[in-house]
Design a protein around this nucleic acid. Structure first.
Length: 268
DNA sequence: GTCGTTGCCCTCGTTACTTCA
DNA sequence: GTTGAAGTAACGAGGGCAACG
């Protein structure tokens, strides 16, 4: 007896993925309003992820980037800053130290970097931002995950950092945020997978029980309908209540030809 | 209107450095 | 003091978009 036999019993076990599946048996709600949008699918059974863009900056990215370019003031500021640079390399050109003239004692680290810049050494510089700097950057990030040139300039001036440093910090911050969100999404999907696996296992077990019941009781020995116990899942699959005529268990609802031999207590 | 170029910014992946257990 | 892991600043590559000629 194989799977085909199961199918021949007239019992139907439905467990699959569909975007419109009635999912009342498993109620999993995304813990976050944000979903794993990086994945190209939505587990349909209960993983009705919102589909909201996880990172709103995706939508606002170009706005925040391009809009300021239309702002003559900020664009001029940026161009002015660019013009002040004597570097030709694009990446180096960004390394403008606009705030170096306002160095304070708080920013000794960044000052050190500026000094090294003056050396012209090509060694990679790495500084640790002060707590105050990090706090202000975080504060700004909460408000805007991306910065327009003017905001960048202002923030850099306020922090006594180069605009490029602010820019890099925001880039890295976005990356870290995305990474964290991905990890959260991953955990969520793992839990969903476990739940679905468990549900699948349970339904298979249920099916086996029903199958065994079917075998134990030949057709002419079917129990009267009143004695049948309908499993909740079967009710769902069978559509009981919607249209009784489509009930897969209707065979016992009609008086059977051999009903006089029916023995509810027959165990074999 | 279309095309090529330029400039800017982005993400992604990586490297290098710092901090901490 | 050493070491490995984690965190993170910095970088380069590649791509998208807008402005311009």
């Amino acid at each position: 007896m194989g799977f085909d036999d199961i199918c021949n019993t007239g019992l139907v076990l439905g467990l699959g993925f569909s975007s419109t599946t009635d999912q009342k048996s498993t109620k999993i709600i995304a813990p976050l309003g944000k979903g794993p949008t990086s994945l190209g699918f939505e587990p349909s059974l209960t993983l009705s992820l919102s589909g909201d863009r996880t990172y709103e900056q995706q939508a606002t990215k170009k706005v925040s980037v391009t809009k300021p370019l239309n702002d003559d003031q900020s664009a001029d500021l940026y161009r002015q800053d660019s013009a002040a640079s004597s570097y030709s390399n694009a990446s180096v050109k960004r390394e403008r130290d606009v705030g170096s003239e306002e160095t304070t004692e708080v920013e000794k680290v960044s000052s050190r970097v500026s000094d090294e810049d003056d050396d012209g050494s090509n060694a990679r510089k790495k500084l640790r931002l002060t707590k105050a700097q990090s706090a202000l950057l975080e504060e700004s990030f909460k408000i805007h995950s991306t910065l327009n040139p003017k905001q960048k300039q202002d923030l850099a001036r306020e922090l006594n950092l180069r605009p490029r440093q602010v820019e890099v910090w925001f880039q890295n911050r976005r990356a870290r945020t995305k990474l964290k969100q991905t990890e959260v999404d991953c955990e969520f999907l793992k839990k969903c997978c476990e739940t679905l696996t468990e549900e699948n296992r349970r339904l298979h077990k249920e099916l086996q029980e029903l199958k065994a019941l079917k075998i134990a009781q030949p057709l002419y020995m079917q129990l009267p309908v009143a004695t049948l116990t309908m499993y909740p899942s079967c009710e769902r699959i069978g559509g009981v209540g919607e249209n009784p005529s489509k009930n897969p268990f209707t065979i016992a609802q009609k008086p059977h030809f051999y009903s006089q031999f029916t023995n509810p207590s027959a165990a074999c």
